[in-house]
Design a protein around this nucleic acid. Sequence first.
RNA 1: CGGGGUGUAGCGCAGUCCGGUAGCGCAUCUGCUUUGGGAGCAGAGGGUCGCAGGUUCGAAUCCUGCCGCCCCGACCA
Length: 440
Amino acid sequence: MRLSRLFLPILKETPKEAEIASHRLMLRAGMMRQEAAGIYALLPLGLRVLNKITAIVREEQNRAGGNELLMPTIQSAELWRESGRYDDYGKEMLRIKDRHEREMLYGPTNEEMITEIFRAYVRSYKDLPLNLYHIQWKFRDEVRPRFGLMRGREFLMKDAYSFDIDAAAARHSYNRMFVAYLRTFARMGLKSIPMVADTGPIGGDLSHEFIILAPTGESEVFCHSDYLTYEVPDENVNFEDATGLQTIVDKWTSLYAATSEMHDSAKFEALPEPVRMSARGIEVGHIFYFGTKYSEPMRAEVTGPDGTPHAVHMGSYGIGPTRLIGALIEAFHDDAGIKWPEAVAPFRVTILNLKQGGADTDAACEKLYRDLSGKGIDVLYDDTDNRPGAKFATADLIGIPWQILVGPKGLADGKVELKRRSDGSRELLSPEDVVARLTL
RNA sequence: CGGGGUGUAGCGCAGUCCGGUAGCGCAUCUGCUUUGGGAGCAGAGGGUCGCAGGUUCGAAUCCUGCCGCCCCGACCA
Protein backbone atom coordinates (compact mmCIF):
# COMPACT_ATOMS: atom_id res chain seq x y z
CA MET A 1 0.00 0.00 0.00
CA ARG A 2 1.21 3.46 -0.88
CA LEU A 3 0.72 5.98 1.88
CA SER A 4 -0.38 8.57 -0.67
CA ARG A 5 -3.41 6.40 -1.37
CA LEU A 6 -4.15 5.18 2.15
CA PHE A 7 -7.01 6.83 4.02
CA LEU A 8 -5.01 7.69 7.10
CA PRO A 9 -6.23 10.87 8.79
CA ILE A 10 -3.53 11.34 11.40
CA LEU A 11 -3.77 14.19 13.89
CA LYS A 12 -0.90 16.29 15.12
CA GLU A 13 -2.76 17.40 18.18
CA THR A 14 -4.57 15.24 20.66
CA PRO A 15 -8.35 15.56 20.71
CA LYS A 16 -9.25 16.82 24.15
CA GLU A 17 -11.65 14.00 25.02
CA ALA A 18 -8.88 11.41 24.98
CA GLU A 19 -7.24 10.88 28.34
CA ILE A 20 -5.50 7.53 28.23
CA ALA A 21 -2.70 6.53 25.88
CA SER A 22 -4.57 4.01 23.75
CA HIS A 23 -7.52 6.32 23.17
CA ARG A 24 -5.26 9.24 22.37
CA LEU A 25 -3.03 7.26 20.05
CA MET A 26 -5.88 5.57 18.22
CA LEU A 27 -7.36 8.95 17.40
CA ARG A 28 -4.02 10.48 16.52
CA ALA A 29 -3.00 7.53 14.35
CA GLY A 30 -6.23 7.72 12.37
CA MET A 31 -7.44 4.30 13.50
CA MET A 32 -10.94 5.21 14.56
CA ARG A 33 -13.52 7.93 14.88
CA GLN A 34 -16.04 8.40 17.62
CA GLU A 35 -19.63 8.48 16.39
CA ALA A 36 -21.42 8.58 19.75
CA ALA A 37 -20.55 7.90 23.39
CA GLY A 38 -18.89 4.49 23.42
CA ILE A 39 -19.50 3.91 19.70
CA TYR A 40 -16.72 4.08 17.15
CA ALA A 41 -16.11 3.70 13.45
CA LEU A 42 -12.92 1.85 12.66
CA LEU A 43 -10.85 3.48 9.96
CA PRO A 44 -8.58 1.45 7.64
CA LEU A 45 -5.58 1.30 9.95
CA GLY A 46 -7.72 0.28 12.93
CA LEU A 47 -9.57 -2.32 10.90
CA ARG A 48 -6.30 -3.86 9.75
CA VAL A 49 -5.25 -4.37 13.36
CA LEU A 50 -8.65 -5.75 14.32
CA ASN A 51 -8.47 -8.23 11.45
CA LYS A 52 -5.03 -9.41 12.56
CA ILE A 53 -6.36 -9.91 16.07
CA THR A 54 -9.47 -11.82 15.04
CA ALA A 55 -7.41 -14.03 12.73
CA ILE A 56 -5.27 -15.14 15.67
CA VAL A 57 -8.31 -15.61 17.90
CA ARG A 58 -9.99 -17.70 15.21
CA GLU A 59 -6.93 -19.88 14.60
CA GLU A 60 -6.58 -20.69 18.27
CA GLN A 61 -10.28 -21.36 18.77
CA ASN A 62 -10.24 -23.75 15.83
CA ARG A 63 -7.08 -25.43 17.09
CA ALA A 64 -8.77 -26.04 20.45
CA GLY A 65 -11.77 -27.65 18.79
CA GLY A 66 -14.16 -24.74 18.28
CA ASN A 67 -16.75 -24.57 15.49
CA GLU A 68 -17.27 -21.09 14.14
CA LEU A 69 -20.75 -19.91 13.25
CA LEU A 70 -22.39 -16.49 13.21
CA MET A 71 -25.42 -15.49 15.20
CA PRO A 72 -27.36 -12.26 14.60
CA THR A 73 -26.95 -9.09 16.66
CA ILE A 74 -30.71 -8.69 17.08
CA GLN A 75 -32.51 -11.19 19.26
CA SER A 76 -36.05 -11.82 20.33
CA ALA A 77 -37.11 -10.95 23.88
CA GLU A 78 -38.99 -14.25 24.14
CA LEU A 79 -35.75 -16.19 24.20
CA TRP A 80 -34.55 -14.16 27.15
CA ARG A 81 -37.81 -14.58 29.02
CA GLU A 82 -37.32 -18.31 28.78
CA SER A 83 -33.97 -18.15 30.58
CA GLY A 84 -35.31 -15.63 33.07
CA ARG A 85 -32.72 -13.04 32.17
CA TYR A 86 -34.96 -10.61 30.29
CA ASP A 87 -35.83 -8.82 33.49
CA ASP A 88 -32.57 -9.55 35.31
CA TYR A 89 -30.28 -7.99 32.78
CA GLY A 90 -31.49 -4.48 33.44
CA LYS A 91 -30.77 -1.29 31.61
CA GLU A 92 -27.51 -2.50 30.15
CA MET A 93 -29.53 -4.35 27.57
CA LEU A 94 -30.67 -2.23 24.65
CA ARG A 95 -34.34 -3.05 24.09
CA ILE A 96 -36.06 -2.15 20.86
CA LYS A 97 -39.39 -2.74 19.18
CA ASP A 98 -39.90 -3.66 15.57
CA ARG A 99 -42.74 -2.35 13.36
CA HIS A 100 -45.11 -4.97 14.70
CA GLU A 101 -44.40 -3.86 18.26
CA ARG A 102 -42.53 -7.09 18.88
CA GLU A 103 -39.98 -6.80 21.64
CA MET A 104 -36.44 -7.27 20.42
CA LEU A 105 -33.02 -6.57 21.82
CA TYR A 106 -29.50 -5.95 20.61
CA GLY A 107 -27.57 -8.91 22.00
CA PRO A 108 -25.23 -8.22 24.91
CA THR A 109 -24.25 -11.91 24.88
CA ASN A 110 -25.55 -15.11 23.33
CA GLU A 111 -26.08 -17.86 25.91
CA GLU A 112 -29.80 -18.02 25.23
CA MET A 113 -29.53 -18.12 21.47
CA ILE A 114 -26.75 -20.69 21.37
CA THR A 115 -28.71 -22.88 23.78
CA GLU A 116 -31.72 -22.60 21.54
CA ILE A 117 -29.64 -23.61 18.51
CA PHE A 118 -28.09 -26.47 20.41
CA ARG A 119 -31.34 -27.97 21.62
CA ALA A 120 -32.86 -27.74 18.15
CA TYR A 121 -30.32 -30.17 16.72
CA VAL A 122 -28.40 -32.12 19.32
CA ARG A 123 -30.07 -35.17 20.78
CA SER A 124 -27.36 -37.59 21.86
CA TYR A 125 -24.42 -37.60 24.22
CA LYS A 126 -22.51 -39.05 21.27
CA ASP A 127 -22.50 -35.58 19.64
CA LEU A 128 -20.65 -34.16 22.65
CA PRO A 129 -18.39 -32.50 23.49
CA LEU A 130 -19.37 -29.53 21.33
CA ASN A 131 -17.87 -26.06 21.23
CA LEU A 132 -19.58 -23.37 19.16
CA TYR A 133 -18.32 -19.83 18.84
CA HIS A 134 -18.76 -16.68 16.87
CA ILE A 135 -17.14 -13.28 16.55
CA GLN A 136 -19.90 -10.71 16.53
CA TRP A 137 -20.73 -7.18 17.64
CA LYS A 138 -22.32 -6.82 21.02
CA PHE A 139 -24.05 -3.89 22.62
CA ARG A 140 -24.06 -3.20 26.33
CA ASP A 141 -25.50 0.11 27.35
CA GLU A 142 -22.80 0.95 29.86
CA VAL A 143 -23.68 3.65 32.33
CA ARG A 144 -20.43 5.32 31.61
CA PRO A 145 -18.48 4.33 28.51
CA ARG A 146 -14.91 5.56 28.58
CA PHE A 147 -11.33 5.04 27.50
CA GLY A 148 -12.20 4.82 23.83
CA LEU A 149 -12.45 1.27 22.57
CA MET A 150 -11.46 -0.15 25.94
CA ARG A 151 -14.93 0.34 27.32
CA GLY A 152 -17.22 1.06 24.45
CA ARG A 153 -20.91 0.29 24.35
CA GLU A 154 -20.73 -1.42 20.99
CA PHE A 155 -17.80 -3.80 20.83
CA LEU A 156 -16.68 -6.92 19.03
CA MET A 157 -16.64 -10.09 21.08
CA LYS A 158 -15.53 -13.62 20.41
CA ASP A 159 -17.87 -15.73 22.49
CA ALA A 160 -17.60 -19.48 22.62
CA TYR A 161 -19.98 -21.92 24.28
CA SER A 162 -19.23 -25.47 25.32
CA PHE A 163 -21.69 -28.34 25.81
CA ASP A 164 -20.88 -31.50 27.72
CA ILE A 165 -22.63 -34.49 29.21
CA ASP A 166 -21.37 -33.96 32.74
CA ALA A 167 -19.22 -31.79 34.97
CA ALA A 168 -16.02 -33.76 34.38
CA ALA A 169 -16.31 -33.48 30.61
CA ALA A 170 -17.18 -29.80 30.97
CA ARG A 171 -14.01 -29.31 32.93
CA HIS A 172 -12.04 -30.63 29.96
CA SER A 173 -13.85 -28.16 27.69
CA TYR A 174 -13.09 -25.36 30.12
CA ASN A 175 -9.43 -26.32 30.12
CA ARG A 176 -9.30 -26.31 26.33
CA MET A 177 -10.35 -22.69 26.32
CA PHE A 178 -8.05 -21.87 29.21
CA VAL A 179 -5.03 -23.09 27.25
CA ALA A 180 -6.29 -21.59 23.97
CA TYR A 181 -6.50 -18.21 25.72
CA LEU A 182 -2.97 -18.43 27.04
CA ARG A 183 -1.80 -19.12 23.50
CA THR A 184 -3.98 -16.46 21.87
CA PHE A 185 -2.64 -13.62 24.00
CA ALA A 186 0.94 -14.86 23.87
CA ARG A 187 0.83 -14.87 20.08
CA MET A 188 -0.03 -11.18 20.21
CA GLY A 189 3.03 -10.54 22.30
CA LEU A 190 1.02 -10.17 25.50
CA LYS A 191 1.77 -11.74 28.84
CA SER A 192 -1.58 -12.79 30.22
CA ILE A 193 -2.24 -14.04 33.72
CA PRO A 194 -5.36 -16.04 34.57
CA MET A 195 -6.99 -14.82 37.76
CA VAL A 196 -9.81 -16.27 39.77
CA ALA A 197 -12.86 -14.19 38.95
CA ASP A 198 -16.23 -13.26 40.25
CA THR A 199 -18.83 -14.89 38.04
CA GLY A 200 -21.08 -11.84 37.87
CA PRO A 201 -24.52 -11.86 36.22
CA ILE A 202 -23.64 -14.77 33.93
CA GLY A 203 -23.50 -17.05 36.94
CA GLY A 204 -21.70 -20.28 37.63
CA ASP A 205 -18.98 -21.42 39.95
CA LEU A 206 -15.73 -21.70 37.98
CA SER A 207 -14.33 -18.67 36.26
CA HIS A 208 -11.08 -16.98 35.32
CA GLU A 209 -10.28 -13.57 34.00
CA PHE A 210 -7.29 -13.22 31.73
CA ILE A 211 -5.45 -10.08 32.68
CA ILE A 212 -2.62 -8.49 30.80
CA LEU A 213 -0.24 -6.25 32.62
CA ALA A 214 0.01 -2.64 31.47
CA PRO A 215 1.06 0.38 33.50
CA THR A 216 -2.14 2.23 32.60
CA GLY A 217 -4.45 -0.74 33.19
CA GLU A 218 -7.89 -0.19 34.65
CA SER A 219 -7.69 -2.54 37.57
CA GLU A 220 -5.20 -3.26 40.25
CA VAL A 221 -3.94 -6.83 40.34
CA PHE A 222 -1.88 -8.88 42.75
CA CYS A 223 0.05 -11.96 41.79
CA HIS A 224 3.04 -14.19 42.25
CA SER A 225 5.84 -12.94 40.02
CA ASP A 226 6.72 -16.46 38.84
CA TYR A 227 3.79 -16.23 36.42
CA LEU A 228 5.91 -13.89 34.34
CA THR A 229 8.38 -16.65 33.62
CA TYR A 230 5.88 -19.43 32.89
CA GLU A 231 6.08 -20.89 29.40
CA VAL A 232 2.94 -20.83 27.31
CA PRO A 233 2.14 -24.19 25.67
CA ASP A 234 3.31 -24.35 22.04
CA GLU A 235 1.17 -25.17 19.01
CA ASN A 236 1.70 -28.90 19.47
CA VAL A 237 -0.27 -29.01 22.69
CA ASN A 238 -2.74 -31.89 22.52
CA PHE A 239 -6.20 -30.53 23.24
CA GLU A 240 -7.69 -34.03 23.31
CA ASP A 241 -5.47 -35.02 26.22
CA ALA A 242 -7.61 -34.16 29.23
CA THR A 243 -4.96 -35.10 31.75
CA GLY A 244 -2.26 -33.11 29.99
CA LEU A 245 -4.48 -30.03 29.80
CA GLN A 246 -5.39 -30.34 33.45
CA THR A 247 -1.70 -30.40 34.33
CA ILE A 248 -1.14 -27.18 32.42
CA VAL A 249 -4.17 -25.49 33.99
CA ASP A 250 -3.15 -26.65 37.46
CA LYS A 251 0.24 -25.11 36.96
CA TRP A 252 -1.22 -21.82 35.76
CA THR A 253 -3.65 -21.63 38.68
CA SER A 254 -1.41 -22.88 41.47
CA LEU A 255 0.07 -19.52 42.46
CA TYR A 256 -1.64 -16.51 43.92
CA ALA A 257 -3.26 -14.17 41.39
CA ALA A 258 -6.25 -11.92 41.97
CA THR A 259 -7.80 -8.68 40.87
CA SER A 260 -8.57 -6.13 43.55
CA GLU A 261 -12.21 -7.31 43.84
CA MET A 262 -11.12 -10.84 44.70
CA HIS A 263 -7.95 -9.88 46.51
CA ASP A 264 -7.16 -11.62 49.79
CA SER A 265 -4.43 -9.52 51.34
CA ALA A 266 -3.70 -12.08 54.06
CA LYS A 267 -2.88 -14.74 51.47
CA PHE A 268 -0.90 -12.28 49.42
CA GLU A 269 1.11 -11.04 52.40
CA ALA A 270 1.96 -14.66 53.20
CA LEU A 271 4.05 -14.85 50.03
CA PRO A 272 7.76 -14.12 50.30
CA GLU A 273 8.24 -10.41 49.74
CA PRO A 274 10.37 -10.64 46.54
CA VAL A 275 7.72 -12.58 44.59
CA ARG A 276 4.81 -10.34 45.59
CA MET A 277 3.84 -8.34 42.57
CA SER A 278 1.18 -5.69 42.46
CA ALA A 279 0.55 -4.06 39.12
CA ARG A 280 -2.08 -2.61 36.84
CA GLY A 281 -3.97 -4.90 34.53
CA ILE A 282 -6.53 -5.02 31.74
CA GLU A 283 -9.08 -7.78 31.41
CA VAL A 284 -8.94 -9.15 27.87
CA GLY A 285 -10.67 -12.48 28.33
CA HIS A 286 -13.08 -14.17 30.69
CA ILE A 287 -14.10 -17.81 30.90
CA PHE A 288 -16.96 -19.40 32.85
CA TYR A 289 -18.29 -22.79 33.65
CA PHE A 290 -21.91 -22.50 34.71
CA GLY A 291 -23.23 -26.06 34.64
CA THR A 292 -26.91 -26.34 33.85
CA LYS A 293 -27.90 -22.74 34.57
CA TYR A 294 -29.31 -22.26 31.05
CA SER A 295 -29.80 -25.81 29.89
CA GLU A 296 -32.29 -26.61 32.66
CA PRO A 297 -34.71 -23.70 32.21
CA MET A 298 -34.35 -23.93 28.45
CA ARG A 299 -34.49 -27.71 28.37
CA ALA A 300 -31.29 -28.29 26.44
CA GLU A 301 -30.95 -31.98 27.00
CA VAL A 302 -29.34 -34.96 25.38
CA THR A 303 -29.98 -38.64 25.84
CA GLY A 304 -27.19 -40.21 27.86
CA PRO A 305 -25.72 -43.71 27.68
CA ASP A 306 -28.32 -44.73 30.24
CA GLY A 307 -31.17 -43.79 27.90
CA THR A 308 -32.44 -40.90 30.03
CA PRO A 309 -32.35 -37.14 29.34
CA HIS A 310 -29.48 -35.13 30.80
CA ALA A 311 -29.35 -31.35 30.94
CA VAL A 312 -26.04 -30.41 29.32
CA HIS A 313 -23.23 -28.74 31.24
CA MET A 314 -22.21 -25.49 29.65
CA GLY A 315 -19.44 -22.95 29.71
CA SER A 316 -18.93 -19.64 27.97
CA TYR A 317 -15.70 -18.00 26.96
CA GLY A 318 -15.22 -14.42 25.86
CA ILE A 319 -12.46 -12.37 24.29
CA GLY A 320 -12.88 -8.73 23.31
CA PRO A 321 -10.96 -8.09 20.10
CA THR A 322 -11.82 -4.39 20.02
CA ARG A 323 -10.73 -4.02 23.62
CA LEU A 324 -7.55 -5.87 22.73
CA ILE A 325 -6.65 -3.13 20.25
CA GLY A 326 -6.65 -0.68 23.14
CA ALA A 327 -4.95 -3.09 25.51
CA LEU A 328 -2.17 -3.75 23.03
CA ILE A 329 -1.51 -0.03 22.67
CA GLU A 330 -1.51 0.39 26.44
CA ALA A 331 1.10 -2.32 26.63
CA PHE A 332 3.16 -1.18 23.65
CA HIS A 333 3.68 2.53 23.19
CA ASP A 334 6.05 5.37 23.98
CA ASP A 335 5.93 9.16 23.73
CA ALA A 336 6.26 9.06 19.95
CA GLY A 337 3.43 6.62 19.34
CA ILE A 338 2.45 2.99 19.07
CA LYS A 339 4.89 0.07 18.94
CA TRP A 340 2.88 -2.78 17.44
CA PRO A 341 4.03 -6.35 18.02
CA GLU A 342 4.60 -7.87 14.58
CA ALA A 343 1.72 -10.34 14.87
CA VAL A 344 -0.92 -7.61 15.01
CA ALA A 345 0.75 -4.69 13.22
CA PRO A 346 -1.35 -3.07 10.48
CA PHE A 347 1.73 -3.30 8.25
CA ARG A 348 4.88 -5.19 9.04
CA VAL A 349 7.26 -2.78 7.38
CA THR A 350 7.22 0.77 6.06
CA ILE A 351 9.55 2.30 3.50
CA LEU A 352 10.34 5.98 4.07
CA ASN A 353 11.51 7.77 0.97
CA LEU A 354 13.48 10.60 2.53
CA LYS A 355 13.83 12.47 -0.74
CA GLN A 356 10.67 12.00 -2.72
CA GLY A 357 11.29 13.00 -6.32
CA GLY A 358 14.99 12.15 -6.18
CA ALA A 359 15.86 9.76 -8.99
CA ASP A 360 17.98 7.42 -6.85
CA THR A 361 15.76 7.36 -3.80
CA ASP A 362 12.60 6.90 -5.87
CA ALA A 363 14.12 4.01 -7.81
CA ALA A 364 15.46 2.32 -4.69
CA CYS A 365 12.13 2.67 -2.88
CA GLU A 366 10.10 1.38 -5.80
CA LYS A 367 12.33 -1.68 -6.05
CA LEU A 368 12.15 -2.37 -2.33
CA TYR A 369 8.40 -1.95 -2.43
CA ARG A 370 8.08 -4.40 -5.31
CA ASP A 371 10.46 -6.95 -3.82
CA LEU A 372 8.89 -6.93 -0.37
CA SER A 373 5.31 -6.97 -1.67
CA GLY A 374 6.27 -9.80 -3.98
CA LYS A 375 7.31 -11.85 -0.96
CA GLY A 376 3.88 -11.41 0.55
CA ILE A 377 4.93 -8.89 3.18
CA ASP A 378 2.48 -6.20 4.30
CA VAL A 379 4.40 -3.10 3.34
CA LEU A 380 3.45 0.56 3.53
CA TYR A 381 5.46 2.82 1.22
CA ASP A 382 5.57 6.45 2.35
CA ASP A 383 5.68 8.04 -1.08
CA THR A 384 4.28 11.38 0.05
CA ASP A 385 6.30 14.51 -0.59
CA ASN A 386 6.60 15.33 3.08
CA ARG A 387 9.96 16.14 4.56
CA PRO A 388 11.92 13.44 6.38
CA GLY A 389 11.00 14.69 9.85
CA ALA A 390 7.30 14.41 9.12
CA LYS A 391 7.73 10.91 7.75
CA PHE A 392 9.64 9.77 10.81
CA ALA A 393 6.95 11.20 13.06
CA THR A 394 4.16 9.48 11.14
CA ALA A 395 5.94 6.12 11.03
CA ASP A 396 6.68 6.25 14.75
CA LEU A 397 3.12 7.31 15.53
CA ILE A 398 1.40 4.50 13.64
CA GLY A 399 3.91 2.06 15.03
CA ILE A 400 4.97 -0.10 12.08
CA PRO A 401 7.53 -2.59 13.52
CA TRP A 402 10.17 -2.08 10.82
CA GLN A 403 11.10 1.16 9.09
CA ILE A 404 13.36 1.22 6.05
CA LEU A 405 14.89 4.67 5.68
CA VAL A 406 15.96 5.39 2.13
CA GLY A 407 17.90 8.63 1.76
CA PRO A 408 20.58 10.13 -0.48
CA LYS A 409 23.30 9.81 2.18
CA GLY A 410 22.99 6.07 2.65
CA LEU A 411 22.34 5.34 -1.02
CA ALA A 412 25.65 6.95 -1.92
CA ASP A 413 27.20 3.90 -0.24
CA GLY A 414 24.55 1.55 -1.58
CA LYS A 415 22.95 1.30 1.87
CA VAL A 416 19.58 1.90 3.42
CA GLU A 417 18.79 1.96 7.10
CA LEU A 418 16.65 -0.67 8.81
CA LYS A 419 15.13 0.68 12.00
CA ARG A 420 13.25 -1.35 14.54
CA ARG A 421 10.39 0.56 16.14
CA SER A 422 10.30 -1.45 19.37
CA ASP A 423 13.77 -0.54 20.60
CA GLY A 424 14.91 2.11 18.13
CA SER A 425 17.88 0.03 16.99
CA ARG A 426 19.23 0.79 13.50
CA GLU A 427 21.36 -1.02 11.02
CA LEU A 428 22.87 0.04 7.68
CA LEU A 429 22.31 -2.65 5.07
CA SER A 430 22.10 -3.05 1.33
CA PRO A 431 18.51 -3.17 0.03
CA GLU A 432 19.01 -6.85 -0.83
CA ASP A 433 20.05 -7.64 2.73
CA VAL A 434 17.04 -5.79 4.09
CA VAL A 435 14.72 -7.91 1.96
CA ALA A 436 16.55 -11.04 3.07
CA ARG A 437 16.36 -9.99 6.71
CA LEU A 438 12.63 -9.37 6.56
CA THR A 439 11.84 -12.61 4.78
CA LEU A 440 13.67 -14.88 7.20
C1' C B 1 -27.24 7.24 38.52
C1' G B 2 -24.73 11.16 41.91
C1' G B 3 -20.70 15.04 41.44
C1' G B 4 -17.70 18.30 38.23
C1' G B 5 -16.70 20.29 33.44
C1' U B 6 -17.41 21.53 28.39
C1' G B 7 -19.72 22.78 23.36
C1' U B 8 -16.80 28.90 18.66
C1' A B 9 -13.40 26.37 11.14
C1' G B 10 -11.01 19.43 10.26
C1' C B 11 -7.88 19.59 15.29
C1' G B 12 -6.22 22.63 19.59
C1' C B 13 -7.84 27.18 21.62
C1' A B 14 -8.98 32.87 22.58
C1' G B 15 -13.26 35.99 22.60
C1' U B 16 -18.50 35.41 26.93
C1' C B 17 -17.60 38.58 33.08
C1' C B 18 -18.42 44.26 30.60
C1' G B 19 -23.86 42.94 23.97
C1' G B 20 -21.90 46.26 18.45
C1' U B 21 -22.06 41.30 13.67
C1' A B 22 -15.91 36.35 14.93
C1' G B 23 -10.08 35.69 15.77
C1' C B 24 -5.15 32.83 16.64
C1' G B 25 -2.03 28.31 15.86
C1' C B 26 -1.93 23.77 13.24
C1' A B 27 -4.24 21.48 9.02
C1' U B 28 -6.21 22.52 3.75
C1' C B 29 -5.54 25.02 -1.39
C1' U B 30 -2.04 27.95 -5.02
C1' G B 31 3.03 29.46 -6.21
C1' C B 32 8.29 29.48 -5.36
C1' U B 33 12.22 27.58 -2.48
C1' U B 34 13.41 23.27 0.57
C1' U B 35 14.39 17.53 1.64
C1' G B 36 17.99 12.47 7.53
C1' G B 37 13.53 14.15 13.07
C1' G B 38 6.53 17.34 12.40
C1' A B 39 10.26 23.30 6.57
C1' G B 40 10.34 28.82 4.92
C1' C B 41 8.15 32.90 2.34
C1' A B 42 3.91 34.97 -0.25
C1' G B 43 -1.17 34.51 -1.16
C1' A B 44 -6.21 32.02 -0.67
C1' G B 45 -10.48 29.31 1.01
C1' G B 46 -13.26 27.56 5.12
C1' G B 47 -17.70 29.09 10.79
C1' U B 48 -26.41 28.55 10.89
C1' C B 49 -20.57 30.37 17.54
C1' G B 50 -24.57 22.66 20.03
C1' C B 51 -30.27 23.35 19.36
C1' A B 52 -34.89 26.04 20.41
C1' G B 53 -37.25 30.02 22.50
C1' G B 54 -36.86 34.91 24.92
C1' U B 55 -34.79 40.08 26.16
C1' U B 56 -32.68 44.03 22.98
C1' C B 57 -32.18 48.76 17.72
C1' G B 58 -28.47 44.81 17.90
C1' A B 59 -26.80 38.31 21.04
C1' A B 60 -21.06 33.77 20.47
C1' U B 61 -21.79 37.17 24.75
C1' C B 62 -27.66 38.22 28.90
C1' C B 63 -32.25 34.88 30.42
C1' U B 64 -35.13 30.03 30.03
C1' G B 65 -35.46 25.11 28.32
C1' C B 66 -33.35 21.03 25.77
C1' C B 67 -29.31 18.12 23.59
C1' G B 68 -24.30 16.28 22.85
C1' C B 69 -19.59 15.08 24.76
C1' C B 70 -15.67 14.49 28.60
C1' C B 71 -13.77 13.58 33.62
C1' C B 72 -14.32 11.53 39.02
C1' G B 73 -17.29 7.94 41.77
C1' A B 74 -20.75 3.48 42.11
C1' C B 75 -21.22 -0.73 37.98
C1' C B 76 -18.97 -3.88 33.90
C1' A B 77 -16.42 -8.22 27.87
